[in-house]
Nucleic acid binder design. Sequence first.
DNA 1: TTCAGAAAGTAAACACTGTTCACTTAAATT
DNA 2: AATTTAAGTGAACAGTGTTTACTTTCTGAA
Lengths: 217, 217
Amino acid sequence: MTASVSSPAERRRNKIRARILTAAEQVFAREGAAGLSIRRLAENIDYSPAAIYKYFSSKDELVDELKESFFELILENVHRIADKSTPFDQRARDCVATYVQIATEKPYHYAAAFAGESETDGPVENEPGFQLSKKGQAFNVLRGMIEEGVELGAFRADIDPSLAAKSVWASMHGLTMMIVHIPTFPAFKPEQNTMSREDFIQFHADQVVRGLEAHHG
Amino acid sequence: MTASVSSPAERRRNKIRARILTAAEQVFAREGAAGLSIRRLAENIDYSPAAIYKYFSSKDELVDELKESFFELILENVHRIADKSTPFDQRARDCVATYVQIATEKPYHYAAAFAGESETDGPVENEPGFQLSKKGQAFNVLRGMIEEGVELGAFRADIDPSLAAKSVWASMHGLTMMIVHIPTFPAFKPEQNTMSREDFIQFHADQVVRGLEAHHG
DNA sequence: TTCAGAAAGTAAACACTGTTCACTTAAATT
DNA sequence: AATTTAAGTGAACAGTGTTTACTTTCTGAA
């Protein structure tokens, strides 16, 4: 048992770990997982390639940490919107738009976060207290908003919030992936000038939310 | 100038090319691009690795052909539905559901088809006559259906079909990607039994189409 | 039918990749 | 001060896509 909860050695170790992560982050943001090699990363921080394995058991583990802290960023932003006191309709649309906005600013992160074949996809809608992934927490925010919408009468009464949330998330995810993979989306070629990206995101968010709305005759 | 449009040598060449492609297809369907290596492929068809480069200039080119013929499969199926004489509403939903269904049967193909950083995303909504990618053709079918819906009065009159088609496509794409990346979706964990996948696809399709519908007082 | 030239196929190498192992050096603990 | 633990390294292993120089096979014209 060590007296201090964080020994000097431990703190020094965490510092180096963080240095590796930030160096990795920079390369990853620009070139994605493909451009990030252990040897290149080692050279950046002036260590031998083997040294990195004293801090991370594999490249995948390293990249997983990048992905997790990326989703933490998304979660923070979505939370900020969801907790605002603006009208419900506005908030719902803004949540969708924000998710897509942040995600598309770091396309490699977002694509990688979902490309991971079968990581710990984790429990998403379980009893609280259980450790939720950031991805799972983001989902719960979304479901909460839909529940609120149903209670307010803005959304159709027959909606199952959990199911609807999955559908909405899928739609958000789809637009995000489109933008990530087709850099000019919603235009397919650079010279085509359709709607601006921001406007299209709003358009899509409207469309998605409209699918949930009750229509008072 | 050769007399016959297809010389024996040429036909023999095409045959070997096809043999390479079908061998690649099988590995790719099971393990994706990561599991498909030139050396392994070469061994499968009993050639040297270098031989493959007499038929394909790179692994990417080879994989691109797999992706293209995969989207040809999707296109055929969507076309079959779109041209049916069933009621419009049914057709619209079935198109969406079929796209997702076929796509998720070959998850690696679908994921790879969109993961390709910046291939020839090609002209999608240009003057006819121009060579459209299969992906582009599929989009045009979708847009055509939405145009029809607007004319029939089933969809809101203020809808821009081209824009709406992109939004709908994004939503379809999103669900497909979700299923591809989270094998148990719409459940997040295997033991959770929510709605069946087929039912959820229909639910999502309903949701998406509802966003377009006009609501007659 | 012979013979030049093109096409098909190959072994070996190049430049990478993630990862591991035996080893040394530095730090911390008893 | 001696011993144990952690940090860091160079070299190697087993892969990868790709290229080059070389040999073999086939083909179209003299």
